[in-house]
């Protein structure tokens, strides 16, 4: 396996959607290629850090209420269901 091919498989490898023989080949390559090994571990950690970069922003209950009222007014003539 060439290094360029190896690197192109990272996304599918992370999502567990490679066939077992490709996984075996990839992991065999990792054992002998330090470059790809480091590339993959830094790649994977980058993805993990991206998932933590933002605090989930919660929309305030007031704006949800405002939105709901607006929609009820606009589309249901102001009548909420019983």
């Amino acid at each position: 396996m060439k290094c360029l091919v190896c690197s192109s498989l990272f996304p599918d490898y992370m999502e567990n959607c490679l066939s077992q023989d490709v996984i075996d080949e990839l992991e065999h390559h990792f054992r002998f290629c330090e470059k790809c090994r480091v590339c993959f571990s830094t790649y994977r950690l980058t993805v993990m850090l991206s998932s933590k970069v933002e605090q989930p922003a919660a929309v305030s209950p007031e704006s949800v209420e405002r939105l709901t009222s607006l929609l009820i007014q606009r589309f249901f003539n102001g009548a909420r269901g019983a």
């Binding site: 949800v64 939105l67 709901t68 929609l71 009820i72 589309f75 249901f76 009548a79 909420r80 269901g81």
Partner: peptide, 9 residues
């Protein structure tokens, strides 16, 4: 159904 709209919100 307005409840459906509220549920989607």
């Amino acid at each position: 159904d307005p409840h459906a709209m509220e549920e989607l919100v």
